[in-house]
Design a protein around this nucleic acid. Structure first.
Length: 118
DNA sequence: CGATTGACGTACG
DNA sequence: TCGTACGCCAATC
């Protein structure tokens, strides 16, 4: 993420979206990790809030790649169907069982690693 | 403008 | 391991 992404010039939501769009296909991350990556540590709940409005964002944000710390698909109800989120993940090769990402620890993508370069 | 609310996270028992 | 409690902070009511 470019360094011009600060909350004074760019909306908090846009920062969240920018990070989420960086998530590679077939990988997932957590709300807290996204919050840390944009500098606003401890605003993990706001990341979820941003995702709530993500369906109005353009281009669309791959919100299905963002899950909670346990790898659970807590936001699945915010998609069209209850299975929509899981379907999208499985379509990318991510296995989901019991509303949880299988091998979440292994598929976890840390935004800080990608953004630290800047 | 104070109270409420969350697609969270951590601490504690 | 599981459920409850609380902190977090911006948006909304």
């Amino acid at each position: 993420m470019p360094q011009n992404l600060n909350k004074t010039t760019i909306d908090f939501f846009e920062m969240v979206y920018a990070v989420v769009r960086l998530i590679p296909r077939g990988r997932v991350t957590s709300y807290g990790a996204v919050a840390n990556s944009i500098g606003t540590k401890g605003t993990s709940r706001m990341v979820g809030w941003a995702m709530n409005a993500s369906h109005t964002a353009r281009p669309k944000v791959p919100a299905h790649r963002v899950v909670n710390r346990n790898g659970m698909l807590t936001g699945k109800h915010h998609f069209g169907n209850n299975n929509e989120m899981q379907m999208l993940l499985e379509k990318e090769g991510i296995k989901v069982a019991e509303d949880k990402v299988v091998e979440f620890k292994k598929l976890f993508w840390n935004p800080l690693i990608e953004i630290k370069i800047k």
